[in-house]
Amino acid sequence: MRLPKPRGVLSEWVVSRLADARPSAAAAPAADAWDDESLALWTLHELSYRGFEDADERAEWDPEVLHVRHRLETALEERLRSRWEQAGPVSVGVPSEVPSALEALVAEDDGPSLADHVRRRADRDQVLELLRQRSVYHLKESDPVAWVVPRLPVRAKAALMELQYDEYGDGDPNRLHSHLFARGLDAIGLRSEYGAYVDDALPETLEMNNAVSLFGLHRRLRGAAMGHLAAFEMTSSLPSRKMVQGLERLDLGGPMAAYYDEHVEADAIHEHLAARDICGTLAEDEPEQADEILFGAFTCLDLETRFATVLLASWEA
């Protein structure tokens, strides 16, 4: 993957700073807009995943670059937490209530459903647009979650590995979820290389990715990372089935439908592992993480709602 196309003065600074390892002559400017800011943070986070062919690998741990990343992460975390505050955060009295509190959060979520639209009404161009946006995450599916493994107590760690093993294909590279998605993209004529559609990504898409990277990269945010994972898995099985129906309706079945088909079955299992064996035991072992788990779950649902709202509005759907 090559460095993305800048969207303003800050992402321009980031891109040129990463392309040239030397300290910058000028300090990083303030972002022009949210779009510029989210692309800048996405680019900085990407250094810890697969990196860029045209970036210096040492930039990942360069203090000047880290300073900018820290500034942007602080702003993002404040934004996410203030939305949770505004939504009227739930708090659990006893850690053992975490799985049922997660279930209640998911049940109360009334955001618009992209999968419903795909199943019934979306046209081919809309589905391709949705898949291009989704590709930013699905081509690295589960990777940010993997960072959390060493930070968990015994039971949550074993449960996360049980889940991740399945995400990563149970040892079979052909069944790795990100690989299944790449095969699906190829089959419907979209580009499947890692990061192919970042230049087309909506700021909402970048923010979803930035949030999950933020949670995955910081040990302090392990509870939020696991809550986010639980909400993601708990809202996947039924919508994945609708995606299969919509893709088949539009003659886009085959490998892309197979990717979603895999998630109908896998996530019907994973949601229980995530809510009970991961989040439930984490809250029991580290009670101060209970409310963080719910913050992470809310963030997952809220960012998906924002993404779906913008996309559906752009289609006048």
């Binding site: 099985s237 039924l238 089935r241 109908v264 079955e265 996530d267 019907a268 299992i269 949601e271």
Partner: peptide, 8 residues
Amino acid sequence: SRLPWCDG
């Protein structure tokens, strides 16, 4: 829809 497996 895919017995014997759960689909949610």
